[in-house]
């Protein structure tokens, strides 16, 4: 009996995210990592767990609870061990929509002038001009209305500081760690994923009394 149990065990780890095209049939081995005895693995790994159809929107949550019946229907009584996440986020990728260049340029210019205006408002708000005049006076002892020798390096340093913080000079990284921006993008994606896992999965919530 002990030997039988080991032979009939399948370990399943659902993948976190899967990208498919519309009308694809999703096989078990696409949606999960599997470990099992070879003959068992051959039998189950190509079984279809989901068919993407017209009525699906671009995100489908496939819960492991939907996968288990398909497995047991195929091969009968087996011992299933689930490891890791209990659902996969299936992303249906429709025709790749390219980024429109005019829109991109528009956003670029929007950010450019927005950033320029914001820094000018900041300088006025904190009386940066007066502070710079004062620093000029302290260091050199002379009076200057426009201490550009201080202000031009300041302006270039401003850009340098931002690049330093984000750890990127265009595509080139300054060191191998992820930048705060990449971490922030990751966190945002994780939040979105957690939201869809709960809200797009009709089995995750149940009302006993429908009021």
């Amino acid at each position: 009996m002990g030997v039988n149990e080991v032979e009939n065990t399948i370990y399943i780890r659902m993948r976190h995210r899967l990208q498919v095209r519309p009308h694809d049939s999703i096989k078990l081995q696409d949606v999960a990592q599997l470990i099992a005895e070879d003959s068992l693995l051959e039998k189950v790994k190509n079984s279809i767990v989901y068919k993407v159809s017209e009525k699906d929107q671009n995100i489908i949550i496939l819960d492991v609870m939907k996968v288990i019946p398909i497995l047991t229907n195929g091969v009968g009584q087996i011992n299933i061990e689930i490891i890791g996440p209990t659902q996969t986020i299936i992303e249906v990728v429709y025709k790749k929509i390219g980024v429109s260049i005019p829109l991109f340029i528009l956003i670029w210019l929007l950010l450019f002038f927005g950033a320029a205006l914001a820094i000018m408002n900041f300088h006025e708000d904190v009386s940066m001009q007066a502070v710079h005049q004062r620093i000029f006076k302290i260091i050199t002892g002379k009076q200057s209305v426009k201490p550009l020798i201080l202000q031009i390096p300041y302006s270039l340093g401003l850009g340098l500081g931002m690049i330093l913080f984000f750890n990127h000079v265009f595509k080139k990284r300054l060191n191998e760690e992820p930048s705060p921006l990449e971490v922030e993008m990751f966190n945002y994606q994780q939040d979105l994923d957690r939201y869809v896992i709960i809200n797009e999965n009709e089995e995750s919530m149940k009302r006993l009394h429908d009021h």
Partner: peptide
């Protein structure tokens, strides 16, 4: 004033970022 301005700028740049 040149290195001073540069340092001040980098600091404000870090703040802004």
């Amino acid at each position: 004033l040149i290195p001073l301005g540069l340092a001040a700028g980098v600091f404000v740049g870090l703040l802004a970022a």
